[in-house]
Design a binder for these strands. Structure first.
Lengths: 142, 142
DNA sequence: CAACAGTTTAGAATAATTATAATTTATAAT
DNA sequence: ATTATAAATTATAATTATTCTAAACTGTTG
């Protein structure tokens, strides 16, 4: 499995021991074309589907948080009871489908660049993110 | 208590029965100068502090959700394990101070209105919110 | 290969929220 | 007014996501 050497390197470079579990989680997260939006539960499901393995829930939490801390994953601000993560760590925007609870990347050209005219004094802007909440046209009114 | 007549009216107009509990919650939420960012727990505390009353937790949840559904409260997207609500229901944005974990309203003129050029087909846009994450200039790297 | 710190693990604990089902209340009809 | 009703409140249980714990295991270093 040549492809995993890179993960082993990456992990070691970052100061994370390349354990079996972490390598597998990296495979699932980063061996894909499209960026991946997921909750912990999504990830656990992918692990069992794609690798036919079971990694303890606590380990999945630990690893995702470790990868996030090291800048390989980004947590997205949605008000949901669950945390959403994104393998695309660049600053970008999202649609959140309130019917299906899915996060969808905005293409660069779908939202005009947001201009922040005044910042809080003494602070640096780390990111400017837009969340567009959408839902079916019919099920809006209570 | 003349001031409560307005809440009784508002509730009834909206199709919500003006119960004792709902009127009290409205008092706490809306009888204030500044807009109020709160979690359910904050609100329960305010109720007991300001009114010296105890309203069942379930009722607080129900009422806040009812008021939100009717457009009198807005839920804010922050990734926290708790839900944050805002008495300011106008379209407006927030700064999130990553040092202090505080939410700060953006004034109307601080962010240019966001234009969403393409929406997901078959969906209606419910909200467009910007979160500007800020932090001290010096403490960014982990 | 031995030692040790770092990881993994199952399961318990915690915290926010939602569901349940009995009681109470607001209102409309009498 | 009184009653009937649907809606709301309540205490408590259930659920869900997440974190904690402590024991077992594993990767790395010498």
């Amino acid at each position: 499995m040549t492809k995993n050497f890179s993960f082993i390197e990456k992990l070691r470079e970052t100061g994370l021991r390349p354990t079996k579990q972490r390598i597998k989680i990296c495979e699932v997260l980063f061996n894909r074309e499209k960026t991946f939006h997921f909750t912990i539960n999504d990830l656990v499901k992918k692990i069992s589907e794609e690798l036919n393995e079971k990694i303890s829930l606590a380990t999945v939490y630990n690893t995702v948080h470790a990868l996030q801390k090291k800048g390989y994953l980004k947590e997205i601000s949605i008000n949901s009871n669950k945390s959403y993560f994104d393998t695309n760590t660049s600053v970008h925007h999202h649609f959140y489908d309130e019917d299906t609870h899915q996060l969808i990347d905005c293409n660069e050209n779908e939202i005009e660049s947001v201009k922040v005219k005044n910042n809080i004094t003494g602070k640096k802007i780390n990111s400017v993110e837009v969340l567009v909440r959408v839902a079916s046209d019919n099920q809006n009114q209570n």
